[in-house]
């Protein structure tokens, strides 16, 4: 099993922490993992993206040039990363914030109204978890149990209610 993932969106959407959560959960599952963030000019509202590899074998290159799956959380991310996706790869689009349609027809596309769903669950802040829930359901890169178990490690200062909201968001995303 090898899954190269790219997550991309605005700074402040929890892109980086979602990537760390996926990598951490992979480690908990006993897999080999790497996480690499775009770094340097991080700021709220700016662009943020990261790549994560989860693999049963040792990870050779930590650079994900042709991802197996992509989470797109804003418009510019779709333009930037859609062309890099592997044929038959998985493109997860947060349709609350992305109105453009993908151009390729050799990929699997799932659109999720993630902001709206997140608000229904409790806060728009957990839109990233809705998307991650869908990603792990489709790719089986890591188990949902490991992600839930890992939440408090990646968000050590989060209140119990917030952890529950995140857990619910992951599960709701898992229905896609």
């Amino acid at each position: 099993m090898y899954q190269g993932v790219i997550m991309s969106g605005f700074g402040g959407q929890g892109i980086i922490s979602t990537g760390v959560l996926l990598a951490y959960s992979g480690m908990v599952d006993g897999k080999h993992v790497t996480f690499f963030p775009a770094y340097g000019a991080e700021m709220r509202g700016g662009t943020a993206n990261c790549s994560v590899v989860v693999s049963t074998d040792e990870v050779a290159s930590p650079v994900v040039s042709t991802p197996d799956s992509i989470i797109v959380m804003n418009e510019p991310s779709l333009l930037k990363f859609e062309p890099t996706l592997k044929p038959q790869g998985l493109l997860l689009i947060n349709s609350s914030l992305v109105s453009s349609k993908p151009k390729r027809n050799d990929i699997n596309i799932i659109t999720i109204d993630a902001n709206k769903i997140a608000e229904e669950i409790g806060t728009v802040k957990c839109a990233n978890m809705v998307m991650l829930g869908a990603l792990i359901n489709r790719t089986k890169a890591v188990s949902l149990e490991s992600v839930v178990k890992t939440l408090s490690k990646v968000y050590p200062r989060a209140k119990k209610e917030m952890l529950e909201i995140n857990e619910n968001a992951l599960k709701r995303g898992g229905t896609f």
């Binding site: 990598a23 480690m27 080999h32 993992v33 790497t34 690499f36 963030p37 770094y39 990870v59 930590p62």
Partner: peptide, 10 residues
């Protein structure tokens, strides 16, 4: 290099 500094691994 910057990649080794910024990446996370077990």
């Amino acid at each position: 290099d910057g990649l080794l500094g910024q990446m996370m691994e077990p």
